[in-house]
Every structure is written in structure tokens, then in C-alpha cells.
């Protein structure tokens, strides 16, 4: 426990001191939001006001993208000699990964809050029921944790920073083939099947329903199940990979 807390402190210090990475993590999501609302938004008809439709998609995209950068952070960290020192301590040395994941969640909470703040300024008008906001926050936290653990495993598996970067691309593009930006049924048949069955869609649908006050249906449980699966899989895989490498 002490070890995990110590590594959380270490990773938070790393986050704050890696200025370029921090700026990318915070400013890129805001830039994407502004682009969709003001550049593409006028031409896309998703039924109703597009800003209300797209903001949940942007939030999920930002969470995915930000959390996926954990893969790069982990891969980079593994190349430093200090990891060997941690491995020769009488502690569960995979606590290093807990540090990375916790710091990633913290970074994402900051950037997601900023995106929501800018979205409100840009005309996003969500429901104000606090219970619905709480549920959405819980789901997003689960999503951040899940993607961060999977990304940590990916970073260990990839071994190089360049390889780990592939995770960022997957996380940055998967949301486009979902109900995040345009309704899934507006896509060609094959693509819309993928969009309806991939994890991003139930997550975006849940966040959208919770924040816009529409019925949530099954999608919330499916979304939580995907996140739980991600957390378990990512944790088990990354602990194993950490011991082997």
C-alpha cells in the first residue's frame, strides 16, 4: 500500500513535469471539441442540436486518447534503469504500474473537466440532475481506469515507445466508428454493425442518455461490463508482462 502510494506520487510528479505531454493531454481534447462544434458541426445532421449530440462522443474520445498515452509513459519508463532497482525491492513491484494508472486517471479528470467546461461555453446544454451526473462520472472514471490498465499492458507488450504509440492511434480512431459523432445507422451496413457492437457505442450512448436526460436502457450495464472486463484484463496482463520482462 505504501509502495503504491509512493509510486502514485512519483507518477504525478512525472506528469506535472512532462510539460509537452501535459499540454497535449489537455489542449488536444479542447481543440477536437472546438473543431467538431464549429467546423464540422454545421454540416452534420444528427437530429436535434449537434453540440448536444457530439459532446458525449468528444468526452469519450478524450478519455480514450488521454488514457492510451499511459502506454507510451509505461514503455518509456521501462527503458530507464530505475525500474531494475524497484524490481530488487521486497515489494510488489508492479505497484509501479498502479502509479502510472492512477496518474493517468488524474490527468484525465483534469482534461475531461476542462472539455466539459469549454463545451458548456460552446452551447452544450445538459440535464442538471445530480444523480445522472454522478452516474456519468462513475462510468467515465471506470472507462479511464480500464483504458489506462489496458494501455499499461500494451506499453509493456510493445516494449518500445514507437510501438506503444499504436495504442494511442487505436484509442483515437475507435470512437469515430461508433455512435460518438454520427448515428451508427447512418453508416454503410458492415461499418454500422461494427459501430453497434464495439465497446465505444454503449459507453457514448450511456453518457449521452445520462447527460441529456433520455432513457438509458441496457447500454449502461453493457458499458460498465466492458469497462470491468478492461480493468481485469489489463491488470492481469500487465502484472504478468511486468514480471516476465
Amino acid at each position: 500500500m505504501t509502495a503504491s502510494l509512493t509510486f502514485v506520487g512519483r507518477s504525478l510528479r512525472h506528469s506535472v513535469r512532462s510539460v509537452d505531454a501535459l499540454l497535449t493531454a489537455i489542449l488536444l481534447p479542447v481543440a477536437i471539441l472546438l473543431m467538431f462544434v464549429y467546423v464540422f458541426g454545421g454540416a452534420i445532421d444528427a437530429g436535434g442540436r449537434y453540440v448536444d449530440y457530439v459532446v458525449p462522443g468528444i468526452i469519450v474520445l478524450c478519455v480514450g486518447f488521454g488514457a492510451a498515452s499511459t502506454a507510451v509513459a509505461v514503455a518509456l519508463d521501462m527503458t530507464t534503469g530505475v525500474i531494475d532497482r524497484f524490481r530488487t525491492l521486497p515489494i510488489a513491484s508492479s505497484a509501479v504500474l498502479t502509479g502510472h494508472v492512477t496518474a493517468s486517471v488524474a490527468r484525465n479528470v483534469v482534461s475531461t473537466s476542462l472539455v466539459i467546461g469549454v463545451a458548456l461555453i460552446a452551447g452544450f446544454r445538459p440535464e442538471v440532475d445530480p444523480l445522472r451526473w454522478l452516474a456519468a462520472a462513475a462510468l467515465l472514471l471506470c472507462l479511464m481506469t480500464a483504458i489506462s490498465w489496458v494501455a499499461a499492458a500494451f506499453g509493456l507488450f510493445a516494449k518500445t515507445v514507437e510501438g506503444a504509440n499504436a495504442m494511442t492511434f487505436i484509442a483515437a480512431f475507435a470512437p469515430y466508428v461508433s455512435s460518438g459523432f454520427v448515428p451508427a445507422d447512418s453508416m454503410p451496413a458492415g461499418l454500422s454493425w461494427i459501430a453497434e457492437h464495439q465497446p465505444v457505442t454503449p459507453i457514448v450512448d450511456s453518457v449521452r442518455a445520462l447527460l441529456m436526460g433520455t432513457p438509458v436502457g441496457n447500454s449502461l450495464w453493457i458499458a460498465f461490463a466492458w469497462c470491468a472486463a478492461g480493468i481485469v484484463l489489463g491488470r492481469v496482463a500487465s502484472s504478468r508482462l511486468f514480471r516476465q520482462s
Binding site: 512525472h14 513535469r17 532497482r85
Partner: peptide, 11 residues
């Protein structure tokens, strides 16, 4: 252990 490559955290 003090290994060949300095095991310190540069950041």
C-alpha cells in the same frame, strides 16, 4: 543493487 546503468529517476 547498484547496477551498471545508474538506477536513478531522472525526472
Amino acid at each position: 543493487l547498484t547496477a551498471q546503468e545508474a538506477a536513478v529517476d531522472g525526472i
